[in-house]
């Protein structure tokens, strides 16, 4: 079966072409606009003014920092739950099949719904504080609080099943013989996990961490509903710049900065895990 170049490109065209047209093109337009050369807003010729505005304003600098905070914190929180959960789910227990379906429900719950649930449970006067009050306990402020704990809870709650699913898949694909071999060589369960299973599952863990991180970076609805009045994440400022102030140059500059941050984190993380990924690459590609 020989496939000509034409056939190949015809096969690739629908998917790749669509993304070039509706993803690549707008992104290029956004980049141009942020540099003052766009067709969005006024064309003023090449300038770095919008980036200068962005970085000189402490409000936006706080925004960048806050955006990073609300993507790193939920990612770490989810990982702290998802990794042990994925390990535990490799064992057999009664009702496993049902559990494997049920735990994934938050995967399909919209972020706004997650935010609403956090509100009714954890806001001051929410259900949790009502239940705890008669016992003499009180909750710290969790909604619109300085540490954005509510935002973190909502984002992590939504990401845990996704992470567990991917890490669990990576763990399950490790041949059982490897663990048996390690045990016979004198490694106990803990050592097998840290030295054999964890390094081998690293590509899956990497993928899960990155996807959750990126998903939280651009989160808009959840921090808008649950986050503090100040600082606001860059995504919220971007929306306001574009649709309330009509300052498209600034809005697109923010978008490009956020994308750049996501890409940078991706690259750094890749670097850090590269050696191991490559070693295992022969097995998992």
């Amino acid at each position: 079966m020989t496939i000509t170049r034409t056939t190949l490109w015809l096969l690739l065209l629908p998917g790749v072409g669509y993304l070039v047209l509706f993803f690549g093109l707008p992104l290029v337009l956004a980049l141009l606009t942020s540099l003052g050369m766009g067709t969005i807003g006024t064309n003023e010729g090449f300038t770095l003014r919008h980036y200068a505005d962005l970085f000189s304003d402490s409000v936006y600098r706080d925004g960048i920092r806050y955006s990073l905070y609300i993507s790193v914190a939920p990612t770490l929180a989810s990982l702290a739950v998802a990794l042990p959960l994925a390990v535990v789910l490799q064992a057999t227990f009664p009702g496993k099949k049902l559990f494997l379906t049920l735990y994934k429900v938050p995967l399909v719950v919209p972020g706004i719904v997650a935010a609403f649930i956090v509100m009714i449970l954890f806001d001051r006067g929410g259900e949790m504080s009502r239940i705890l009050k008669p016992v003499g306990l009180s909750l710290p402020k969790l909604v619109r609080d300085d540490w954005s704990l509510g935002v973190i809870i909502a984002l992590a709650w939504k990401s845990i099943p996704f992470m567990t699913l991917i890490i669990g898949g990576a763990l399950a694909s490790i041949p059982a013989d490897l663990a048996a071999a390690a045990r016979s060589l004198g490694a106990n369960r803990r050592v097998v996990f840290w030295q054999i299973e964890l390094p081998m599952a690293l590509p899956g863990i990497t993928a899960a961490v990155l996807l959750v991180f990126v998903g939280s970076t651009g989160a808009f609805a959840v921090p808008s509903l649950l986050g503090p009045i100040y600082p606001k994440p860059l995504s919220v400022w971007m929306y306001e710049a574009a649709y309330q102030q009509n300052d498209w140059g600034l809005a697109t500059a923010m978008g490009i900065v956020m994308s750049a941050i996501a890409c940078a984190v991706l690259l750094i993380y890749y670097r850090l895990t590269h050696g191991l990924n490559r070693a295992i690459g022969g097995e998992t590609r």
Binding site: F23, A30, V214, G218, A242, T252, I256, M258, S259, A262
Partner: peptide, 9 residues
């Protein structure tokens, strides 16, 4: 990788 809001805008 690119946040949905940016793609959206």
């Amino acid at each position: 990788i690119v946040p949905g809001l940016i793609v959206g805008i």
